[in-house]
Amino acid sequence: MRLPLLALLAKEPAHGYELKQALEVTFGSAYPSPNIGQIYVTLGRLEKDGFVRAVDVEQSNRPNKKVYYLTAAGREALEAWVDEPTEGPRVRDEFFMKLVLAPLTGIADRMALVNRQRRHYLSLMRDLGELAERTDPGNRVARLLIEGAMLHLQADLDWLERCQEDLT
């Protein structure tokens, strides 16, 4: 959450609620809607680290609101984030832990574990397919997020098949 907020503030100063709205508009329904409390907590930490600063803006009949803007240190942190390659997905799968460890304890059958997991992945895929149908075709960001999630799921299923071939 920290760096996306810095990126939004690099465009223009904003208060917390505006940042929440900007995230929602940009990513659409394919991305979990950010919690406003979480945004304020993150902004507080960014302020403490010197990456953003806040100014109080007076409002008539309402409490002052804090408008945040990016500092030079904040811009540097943002540039460093953009410039470095992003870690690829790591195979550190909770299901794999279950699959490997369960038979040692005698509490579960590997075949049953794999079968249940496959059906769960297919349920997730069906959900994604329905989400894709509901998503505005013009929202390319949301569409690509869903497509990415689908491709990850396909890879998970292919890997599950390999696990079933080799471990059961």
Binding site: Y31, P32, N115, R119, S123, L124, L145, Q164
Partner: peptide, 25 residues
């Protein structure tokens, strides 16, 4: 080795598939 229906996901109230994207993103 398996023959069973594909279940519907239990939806949390107000939950979007965004949660799925986060899980697998």
């Amino acid at each position: 080795v398996d023959d069973a229906p594909i279940a519907r996901l239990q939806r949390r109230p107000g939950g979007t598939a965004g949660d799925i994207v986060e899980l697998h993103g």
